[in-house]
Design a binder for these strands. Structure first.
Length: 247
DNA sequence: AAACTACACAACCGCAATACC
DNA sequence: AGGTATTGCGGTTGTGTAGTT
């Protein structure tokens, strides 16, 4: 059977040449970001919109940091990955100048093999010493793709001070209760932090016997924030979050 | 020096969410 | 409200190159 090739001009693929970068750069300077589908038409660049968007986002955009990761960045990636899983865009969001693609590649080529498989978290409290259901819940949670309306979306909140309460239960649309009380416990958990960081393990334990923390005191050399996760008291729900302590 | 291999990273693909009409 | 286009994301593949035989 004869297979006829499409005569339609296929967008150019493969590695970008410096002259193509120049064209794309000047296109963005002229027309701004967005409307990537029109780039080839307007600029004469024989690339698909998707390819142009990616090239701009990952390499040509201003303030992109190139080159090797610092020890601090590496440490941060490991910690955040431990908590969030393959949520590369979220992780990259905490690394100024780094892209999700770069973080992902770095993880796959450098860190994945470095991290010890099956390394157990330290758990405050003894009543979940080993609970497969909970482990499964965590894994399921990590593997979930972000859904903007998902009830399992990680909780993100900021507050000026660690000791000040904040409401994380409120949805963007004001409907509230996405995390079904998760905000309340997070608020209380945050109150257990004496950001300095003196982490009051005893208090956390008393309030949240199933609270799970990262192995090491959280590094404070970059911008200050804390990653934490906790189980609901029934063990049937998992909450996790990043708490910022920006001044 | 050539052939082969392993590694790092750039780029692509498919899917889902969001925006727009 | 529904359809289409655009954008964002994570997984995967492709390509260049350094190291090894």
């Amino acid at each position: 059977m004869e297979i006829r090739k499409e005569n339609k001009a296929q967008p150019k693929r493969g590695l970008w040449k410096p002259e193509e970068d120049l064209i794309l750069k000047s296109y963005v300077e002229t027309y701004g970001e967005g409307n990537w589908a029109t780039v080839s038409k307007r600029s004469g660049l024989m690339r698909g919109g998707k390819s142009c968007r990616l090239r701009w986002k990952n390499y040509l955009r201003p303030n992109i940091k190139r080159g090797g990761m610092s020890k601090e960045e590496e440490d941060l990636i490991i910690r955040m990955h431990k908590l969030l899983g393959n949520r590369w865009s979220l992780i990259a969001g905490r690394l100024p100048g780094r892209t999700d693609n770069e973080v992902k590649n770095y993880w796959n080529t450098h860190l994945n093999k470095k991290t010890i498989l099956g390394q157990k978290r330290k758990t405050i409290g003894s009543n979940i010493q080993h609970d497969d259901n909970i482990e499964d819940t965590i894994e399921n949670h990590k593997n979930k793709k972000p859904r903007h309306n998902s009830s399992h979306q990680p909780i993100f909140g900021t507050c000026p001070k660690a000791t000040e309460g904040f409401d994380l239960d409120e949805n963007k649309d004001g409907s509230g209760g996405v995390q079904d009380g998760a905000g309340a416990w997070m608020e209380r958990v945050v109150q257990c932090f004496d950001y300095g960081f003196g982490f009051d393990y005893e208090t956390v334990h008393q309030n949240y016997s199933n609270f799970v923390i990262d192995e090491e005191p959280f590094t404070s050399y970059m911008d200050p924030f804390v990653l934490f996760e906790a189980f609901g008291t029934t063990g049937s729900d998992v909450g996790m979050g990043i708490q910022s302590f920006l001044p």
